[in-house]
Structures are given as C-alpha cells and as structure tokens.
Amino acid sequence: MTPLSLKRKILLLLLLIWIVLSFLSVFYNAVKSVSEAKAWLPLSDSEKRQKIFGNLHPFFIFIKTHTEKNSNILIFSDDAKTYYLGIYYLYPRIIYTTENIKEFSFLAKTLKYDYIAIFNNNFSGNNYKLIKVQNFEGNNRFQLLKRK
C-alpha cells in the first residue's frame, strides 16, 4: 500500500463518517422539531419569555407596569442576568442593580433613585414607601417602593 492510498483511505473514511453523521443530524432535527413544536407552539409570547428568562420576566413586567419611562430604579436581585436583561426590558428607565445587601442598603440611603425594586427580599426605609407587592408562583415576591 502506498502512503498516498493510505491517506486517501483515511480521509475518505472520515468524509464518509461525516456524511453519515450529517444525514443522521437531518433526521434527528426533523424528529426534534416535533417535540420542540409541542413544547413551544402552545405557549403565548409571555409564557415563552418566562420559560427562557425565568421569574425575571414577570419581575421586569411588574416594574415596567408601575414605573414611569424616565425613572431611575435601584434593583435588588441575586440573578446574574438582572443588569443586562433589566436594561433590555426597561430602557429608557435607567437601572442600577446589586446582589449585595450591604451595598443595596447604602445605595438606597443616597436617595438617588426614584424607585427601588426588590426580588425576594425585604426592605424598609424611611424615605421610600411601598407602593406595590406581587406574589408570584414558587414563593417569589416582588416589591416596588417609591421615593417619598
């Protein structure tokens, strides 16, 4: 066997396996589309977003519904997605997020924020009054406070 024919055989074998894998992936995707359709098609747009983003979706809708467009909002949440997803949902509202309770308490005292939104925690400050509370599935609690 010459080296060239060995190369040819190895590369042809790889190509052949690749072709087989590609055909299999077409069938896999075709079959998968049925289960994907069952899982996603019956859902409303809001349900899809909750499936993707979890409880941050109703949390941001809750904030959006009860705040003005150009307000500053301090958000307490320990979910890593909060900052960017918060901007995505809430712009042109300007948000600041923290997951550190000490930092949160400090920032709340600066009174720079028109609103404070809290995901699963409690806060009471003299200068903010609680304007809305919403309990959400899975013992989740959203609170919104407005500067007095």
Partner: peptide, 25 residues
C-alpha cells in the same frame, strides 16, 4: 436534505424570541 435542514432552521428561528445571552445582552 438541504431543504429539510433549511425548513428546520426557519421553523426554529420563529419558534421563540431571542434566547442566547450575547443576543439580548
């Protein structure tokens, strides 16, 4: 085979809003 794949990708793209982190962030 190409058309099946294209149909699948087209179906998937319409199935849900943006999902991936870099997409929405």
């Amino acid at each position: 085979m190409i058309l099946i794949t294209v149909s699948y990708v087209f179906f998937e793209v319409l199935l849900r809003p943006v999902t991936v982190w870099d997409g929405w962030a």
